[in-house]
Every structure is written in structure tokens, then in C-alpha cells.
Design a protein around this nucleic acid. Structure first.
Lengths: 206, 206, 206, 206
DNA sequence: CATGAATGAGCTTTCATTCAT
DNA sequence: AATGAATGAAAGCTCATTCAT
């Protein structure tokens, strides 16, 4: 069996094991067995547990970014692009929960080098969302004095909310990717509108 | 030294170690040393690593719930109660990062029993928030058909958005934590209002 | 059983195993079993294979130096001191072949840090021998123009020869420590006499 | 490329690796890579690590013996033959340190079979030297009762002394290798003369 | 002739846990 | 109430060795 194929099998097994057991609790023995190969072969191809983990992170990050980009309705209005991207994001994480767990839970909690790998992907997504929100603002409400920083903050909040909801939607039965995306769009849109109108929440008098 | 005090010292050490190293990477040796006691004593008082972890989760969960409940301005309008509760939540997690890491990152990724412990706490908070939101809904908009699930999703999204904003505010120069919190409340309140009024985002035609 | 005693047992086993199998071929499993303890205890007390090896080297080096110093006839003429020291050296290495193998064969061939440990001991012995040879020269032949460097070279050669002979005498049956020492004294004394008389070997004419 | 050449390349790589890393630490992987061939080819030609090691020992032993034999001035006086033989020995070992390490350090410490291989070579050299010394004895001092064992001991001592002097000459500034070699021959010839004349060192009275 | 693919066995090291005192 | 002493079990990693092609 050619090396490239074997490597993918190993990484499939590794993502599943890392995602379900956690980085530390996942044993190379288990990964090898799940991949249907011997342990030395895993080391021969992927060198060490750390490198294997890094390879998983990179592969899953690229897959996620690719899924989101493929989901965006190019040419549509910015809000629809955002909404379809969110839908693709929720759909991908829902259909690939172990990969999402690796990125969201494992990579961020086991050392700077791993976290940096995910941070790069996240920055890419945030930049993409920031661009969309800015475009949406111009399209929907015309030019405004919306500050760059406000848009950036909103994008950060939106991405964070989406990440958090992804984990939750996977657990709670009956929440579809589309529903989750719609709920989030409601928030984002409302928040965006308020920001542009300069309306901020002020506490009630009582 | 009385047993109760010793136990708290051990749990302090355990929370710090679990939070920083992760459940698996934390060793009983390190915890005992950090607590300034011998390892057998840790076992005498807390029986096993799992039970020690469970005890930490429970203590930190109760502390968090207590902090939130203590933070709400009783008798104020519902929005102010929500706002003050959120403030207390963020203040507590920020000042107690190891405890929050134990609840948020460790407990959820190391087996059903631990996750259940945290879920119970979250349900308690969600119920509390649901009550507040219900009151707010009646006060501000009359009756509404807000579902429990919507509120839970909102809570989840809020936490994710808050974490994301916190990290961003720390990194980006010139963005204060206060501004980030304001953005968040703004975001939450606007979205909540929309949800309660039954106003939902509808896609642009293009 | 108190820690100090156990540690000596472990080092006894380690010296024997390192001496007979070699550093790499010696397994911590075998050492632990030979010492009658479990492997983790070896690690608890001696930290790692490298540190265990270092501890063995240090102990055996000190034992050898002590044996030689104890064997020297204090107050006797320099040549007798040298002879008795050599005898003690051969006797010690013969009765403790594993220790000698650790110092002479293993420590020198497994990395700078280990070799340095033995080099320090060797320098001590060489200095001692250099002093004796100098004294012997003055006693036996009166003052001469013997150069410091010649004495040092002779001492180096003598110690090297002794080290080499020790390994050989252990293998060949029937060579006693005294015989080996006497043989070596013959060489050393003859060489010393020649050096002092300025007589050097010159090739035959044919 | 013909088999014989390939085999020599592999053995070159093996001698270098065995000499520098030691028998156990040397890996077949490294040897194959250094030889520029694939691992199975090494096995096809040389069967196993043990056989490869044995082949190296044999080749290096023959090379050493050949170098010594080629170095002696045939027809010269016995002392000159001995001197030239010693010179050739030191020249060869100095210019081929890995081979010498294999013979002197590795082969003797990794099991009877390997040690026996070297012992055979040593016996050959010792027999050769014994012949020379016997001739020298007859030439210079008439018949003597020199035992084979004495000669073997002398050879052993000489090697040790030479190694020690070489290391010392390398370290100590201002001592040339030639001076050290002269000291050694001086030492050897004087001691040898004493032995052959039956003159032995006798302890001082004090 | 030569190699990419693959593995059984063994190594050093760590950890949660217990017992005798 | 508290600990020094001790271990079974398992983890990450490496290595000599073999096949199918």
C-alpha cells in the first residue's frame, strides 16, 4: 500500500483518537491499532506524537477553511455570503466532530506551538468575516462612520460565538447547521445595525 | 492543622495544576508537592485522582455560581440584573483563570462523569438567566415565545464571544476590556430584543 | 530497608551489569532485578540511566583511589611506595573486575561527560605517581638534570601501562598482582635509570 | 557496481559507525545511509549486524597485521625490526582510529566470539614479536629464558603506554608525538634488556 | 540487483496507587 | 495524623530484521 494512503489512514485514526480521548490520553498504540498498522510504521511516517498531532491540526484546519470557502455563495450579497459561510462552518464541524475537537479543544490546550497553528487559521477566518461585515455595512446601510475597530470586534465576537455554538450544537440533538447559522445571523445583524446607528445598550433606570 | 484547611490547600494546588497542565498531564506528585503535603495524605483525604478532580470541579462550579448570584443587583430591572450577572461572571473567570480552565476546558474533555458535573452547573446558570430574560421579556415586550433552547444557545454563544473578545482585547493595543464588555452587552441585548420581538434576519434578495 | 542501603545494592548491581554487558547493552530491567527491587525504585533513587552510570563511575573511581592510597607503604623509600601502590592497584582491579571495566572500558567510550569523570581520577593518580618518580630519582641517583617533562612522560606511560596490564592480568590466569607490579617496576626502573643517565636507545647499525 | 566494491563501501561505513558510536549504539539504518545503499542490501550481502561486525573486525585485524609486517625492515638487526614494527603499528592505528577503536574497544567488550577474533590477531602479532625479541636476545645477550607470557605482557603494557602517551602529547603543549614515541622505545628497550639479562628491580631496604 | 513497506520485541521513563510504621 | 518506601502497568520511542516486488 502506498505511503500517501497509509499516512491518511493514520491521520484519520489519530484525529479520531485525539478528538475523543484528548491529546495526552490518546496512546500511539491505540492510534496504530485503529489505523490497522503497527506502531513503528506510524513513527516511520510521522516521526513522533507531537508531529503527528501537528499534522492532524494542519490537515483539519485546512479542511475546515476549505469547507467554509466552498460554502460561501460567491457573488451574493455580503449578508448571504456570511450566512452561507456560517452554515458551511456548522455543517462541517457537525459532520466532523473529532476534527473540530482537535482544533477547538485539544490544540489550544497543549502548548504554544499547537495553539499557534490554530491561531493562524482562526486569523484567516476572522479576516474573511471582517471583510464581509464591512461590505455588508456599506451595502445595507450605505456609508457610515463605523469604526474599523468596531467591525473587528464584531467579527471576533461572531467567530468566537460560532466556535462555541459548534461544540454545543454537536451535543444537543435536533439543532441543524442552518438553524444555528440563522440564530447567529440574527444576533450579528442586530448588533451590526445597532453599531451603525450609534445605538448602544444603556441600563434601565431601575 | 485541621482537616478542612488541609483539604482546601490540596484543592487549591490541584486546581492550579489541573488548570495549567491539564487533567492527564497533572501528576499527583506535583499536586502534593505544591500543596506542601505528602502524597499518601492526598489519597487519605481525597481517595483518587478522579475524585480529587471531581471535588475541584464541584468547588469551582459552586464558586462560580455563587459569584454570579452575588453579582446581580437584586430588585433592579431585568436588563440590569443580566448585565450585572454577566459582569460578575467575567470578573470571576478573569480573576480565577485556573478554576475556569478546569470547568471549561478540562472537565468537558475527560469523560462523561466530569462533563455531567459541569453540565449541572451550567443548567443552573441557564435556568437563572432564563428567568431573568423571561422577566425582561415581559417587562419590555410583553409575552414572548422564547424557547429554553434559544436561551441555552445564547448563553453558549455569549461565553464564546466573550472569550474571543477577551483574547482579542488583550492582544490588540488600545482596546480596553471594558470596551469589549460593552460591545458584548450591546450585541447581546440587541439580539435578545430581536429574538423576543420575533424579528428575525432575512437574507437579501441577491 | 533504608534508602542508603538500597542505593548501594542498586549500584552494586549496576556496576556488575554495566561492567559485563556494557553501558548500552545493560538494561535497567536487568539492573533492577539483580538488585532485587522494582525498576521504578531505581529511577526514584537514581533518576536515570545516565545518572546511575555517573554515580557508579564516581563510586568506583573513589574506591580505586582509596585502595591505592591505602596500599602505599607510607614512610618507605619512593620506589617501594610506587611498587606497593602498583600492587594495590592490580589487587583492587583484579578483585573488582566489573568496577574496573566500568572505569576503563565503559566510561571512556560513552561520551565526554563520563570520560571526564574518569579523567579527573586518572589525573590524580598520575600526579601522585609523578611525585613518587621525582622523589625516587632524587633518592636513588642524587640530583640530576632530569627534566620535569621527562618525569611526567614516564608517569603517563607507567599509568597507561598499568591500566592496560590490569585488564590483561584479569584475563590471563596465574598472574598475581605482585607479579604484575614487579614486572612493571622492572620497566619503570630501567627506563628511569636510562633517562637519568642520559642514555637513550639508538638503533643498531645493521 | 560489482559486489566486492559495494561490500567494501558498506564495511567502511560500518567501521566508521561502530568505531564512533560503539557496537550497540550503531544502527543498521545509519550504516546503510552512510554507505549510500538501502538496508536490505546490507542484509543481503552481510546477513546480520553480528556478521557485519565480525567482518569488520576481521578486515581491520588483517589490515593492521599487514601494516605492521610491511613496516619492519627485513634483514635489519632485531632491535631495528622491532622499532620499525612498532612505528608501523602506531602509524597505522593513528591514521585509522575507527578501525583501531573497533578492534581495541568494541570487539573486546561485546561477547566472547568477537573478542576471540581479536585475540587471534593479537596472538599472531605476539608470535611475530616474540620471534623478533628472541632473535634480539640471542644477538645482544645470548640465550635467555624469556617466557611467551612475559612478551605478551610487554606488548599489552606497550600499547597502554603508547595510548596514554599519545593522549598526553596531544593535550600537553610542546610535547611532540615523536618525542613521546622515542620515550616509549627507550622505555621498552631498556626494560627488555633488563628482562633478558635477568636483572630485576629489587626494593630499597627502607 | 535493489528497494519501499512493514513489524515483533525491547528500551527508558512515568504515574497512580498502596502499605508498614 | 502523617509518611518513607515501594510497585504494577503502561507510555513514547527505536531497532534489527524480513518480504513482495
Amino acid at each position: 500500500m502506498p505511503r500517501a494512503v497509509r499516512e491518511q489512514q493514520m491521520m484519520d485514526a489519530a484525529v479520531r483518537t485525539f478528538g475523543q480521548r484528548g491529546y495526552r490520553a490518546a496512546s500511539m498504540d491505540e492510534i496504530a491499532e485503529l489505523a490497522g498498522v503497527s506502531k513503528p510504521l506510524v513513527y516511520l511516517y510521522l516521526n513522533s506524537k507531537e508531529e503527528l498531532f501537528t499534522a492532524c491540526i494542519r490537515r483539519e484546519a485546512q479542511a475546515l477553511v476549505a469547507a467554509v470557502q466552498a460554502g460561501v455563495e460567491v457573488g451574493a450579497a455580503a449578508d448571504r455570503q456570511l450566512s452561507s459561510g456560517l452554515g458551511a462552518f456548522f455543517a462541517h464541524t457537525a459532520s466532523n466532530p473529532d476534527g473540530w475537537a482537535v482544533l477547538h479543544q485539544q490544540a489550544r490546550t497543549h502548548g504554544e506551538p499547537f495553539a499557534a497553528e490554530v491561531a493562524a487559521m482562526r486569523d484567516e477566518i476572522v479576516a474573511f468575516v471582517t471583510g464581509l461585515i464591512g461590505a455588508a455595512a456599506r451595502e445595507t446601510h450605505g456609508d457610515s462612520d463605523l469604526l474599523q475597530r468596531d467591525v473587528a470586534g464584531l467579527a471576533q465576537a461572531l467567530v468566537g460565538a460560532a466556535e462555541s455554538l459548534a461544540a454545543w450544537a454537536n451535543d444537543a440533538e435536533g439543532v441543524s447547521a442552518k438553524e444555528a447559522a440563522a440564530t447567529l445571523m440574527n444576533f450579528a445583524w442586530a448588533g451590526l445595525g445597532n453599531l451603525m446607528r450609534g445605538e448602544r445598550w444603556v441600563p434601565s433606570s431601575r
